[in-house]
Simulated assay, not measured.
Amino acid sequence: MRSKAALGKALKEIRAITGVTQEDFGLVSSRTYISTVERGLKSPTLGKIEQLAGVLGVHPLVLLTAAYMDRFTHKEVERTAARLRDDLLAIVDGELR
Rank of each mutant, 00 (worst) to 15 (best):
Arg2Cys: 04
Lys4Trp: 11
Ala5Arg: 04
Ala10Phe: 00
Ala10His: 02
Leu11Pro: 03
Glu13Asn: 01
Ile14Cys: 05
Arg15His: 08
Arg15Asn: 05
Ala16Leu: 13
Ala16Met: 10
Ile17Asp: 13
Thr18Met: 14
Val20Pro: 04
Val20Ser: 09
Asp24Ala: 12
Asp24Glu: 14
Val28Lys: 03
Val28His: 01
Ser30Ile: 06
Arg31Tyr: 06
Ile34Tyr: 00
Ile34Trp: 01
Ser35His: 08
Ser35Gln: 06
Thr36His: 09
Thr36Arg: 10
Val37Glu: 02
Glu38Tyr: 03
Arg39Lys: 09
Lys42Tyr: 10
Lys42Asp: 09
Ser43Pro: 07
Pro44Thr: 04
Thr45Phe: 06
Thr45Gln: 06
Leu46Ala: 14
Gly47Thr: 07
Lys48Tyr: 07
Gln51Pro: 03
Leu52Pro: 02
Ala53Thr: 04
Gly54Ile: 03
Leu56Asp: 05
Gly57Cys: 07
Val58Phe: 02
His59Gln: 10
His59Phe: 08
Ala66Ser: 11
Ala66Phe: 03
Ala67Arg: 02
Met69Thr: 02
Asp70Trp: 00
Asp70His: 06
Arg71Glu: 12
Phe72Val: 05
His74Phe: 08
His74Met: 15
Lys75Phe: 14
Glu76Ala: 15
Val77His: 08
Val77Thr: 08
Val77Asn: 07
Ala81Asp: 12
Ala81Cys: 08
Ala82Asp: 11
Ala82Glu: 10
Ala82Leu: 12
Arg83Leu: 13
Arg85Glu: 09
Leu89Phe: 15
Leu89Tyr: 13
Ile91Gln: 11
Asp93Ser: 12
Asp93Val: 14
Gly94Val: 07
Glu95Trp: 15
Leu96Phe: 13
